[in-house]
Simulated scan of single mutants.
Amino acid sequence: MAYLLLVTSIVFSGSASPQPSFPRSLALARRVRCRRVSDSSEVLKSDEGASKLEYKRGILDDFFMQSFRNKLVEEVGSDSEKPGYVGLIELVKLLLLKSRTRSETSDAAVRILKSLFPPLILELYKLLIAPIAQGKIAALMVARVTVLTCQWLMGPCKVNVIDLPNGESWDSGVLVERCQYLEESKCVGVCINTCKLPTQTFFKDYMGVPLLMEPNFKDYSCQFKFGVAPPEDDGNVNEPCLETCSIAGRRKLNSGVCPMA
């Protein structure tokens, strides 16, 4: 989910708030299987046998993760007993499970994203930066800040050139080589409802930057396209459930569509 952008905004958003304990009964009832993310920069093998790219976190990355986790705890109402990235993903899954509808999950994720930014910064960015050069400057800026501040969440990524519907090409894309958020959650619903849809909504509505995210559920890569609006009929939201999904389990539909998406 989502996902952190501006270092100054995170700093302004404040220190950690007290975290209530995660109810053991709920934890047992909704147990999820997640692998611990290594702090090394080694390339490991995932359960599916593909190379797993590891990002070596720094001091600021740990601060970003804790800030994000604190906001998740506030929204969910409890904390995971697991530390680090594994506990973070468990909280994201709990956010998905406690919501009754897709829109309810997405709205909660948008609230978390908004809470990471002082309102004035978002309003000023949308008012003063987003309109410059038909949105190009704002799109280029957020692409670079994303790479600088969000690799702890998504894994290794880089700025790349994307094609716009009008035929122009901007270097306002971000290619996530292998998204650890998706790989650790192993859930299409988590990707779509706590990351893709709310992140697209957040950038468009609160920063004035259109965004199309194109996750690849086969190789776990993801292409961010800042400056490109999502199509009305987005096929990504109807992807089949992953075979390794620990949330859907026996609730998979006959059609194969992920019941959590």
Rank of each mutant, 00 (worst) to 15 (best):
1 M>F: 07
2 A>C: 02
3 Y>W: 03
7 V>Q: 02
8 T>N: 12
15 S>Q: 08
17 S>Q: 13
21 S>Y: 14
23 P>R: 03
24 R>W: 00
27 A>I: 05
28 L>P: 15
31 R>K: 11
31 R>F: 13
35 R>Q: 09
36 R>K: 11
44 L>H: 14
48 E>C: 02
54 E>S: 12
56 K>N: 07
60 L>W: 15
62 D>S: 12
63 F>T: 13
65 M>R: 03
67 S>H: 07
68 F>Y: 08
69 R>H: 12
74 E>T: 01
79 D>A: 09
80 S>W: 15
86 V>E: 03
86 V>P: 03
87 G>I: 00
88 L>R: 07
96 L>H: 06
96 L>I: 03
97 L>N: 08
98 K>R: 11
98 K>P: 11
99 S>C: 14
99 S>L: 08
104 E>Q: 09
105 T>I: 07
108 A>D: 10
111 R>H: 05
117 F>E: 12
118 P>Y: 10
119 P>L: 00
119 P>E: 06
121 I>W: 14
121 I>V: 15
127 L>A: 06
129 I>P: 14
129 I>M: 07
131 P>V: 01
132 I>V: 15
136 K>N: 02
139 A>K: 00
139 A>Q: 01
153 L>C: 05
155 G>V: 13
158 K>E: 00
158 K>Y: 03
162 I>Y: 07
162 I>K: 06
169 S>E: 15
170 W>G: 00
174 V>M: 06
175 L>Q: 02
187 C>R: 14
191 C>H: 01
193 N>Q: 04
199 T>V: 10
202 F>H: 04
204 K>Y: 10
205 D>N: 15
209 V>P: 14
211 L>P: 10
216 N>V: 05
216 N>G: 01
217 F>M: 02
217 F>T: 08
218 K>F: 11
223 Q>D: 06
236 N>D: 06
243 E>V: 10
249 G>Q: 05
253 L>A: 02
255 S>L: 09
261 A>K: 04
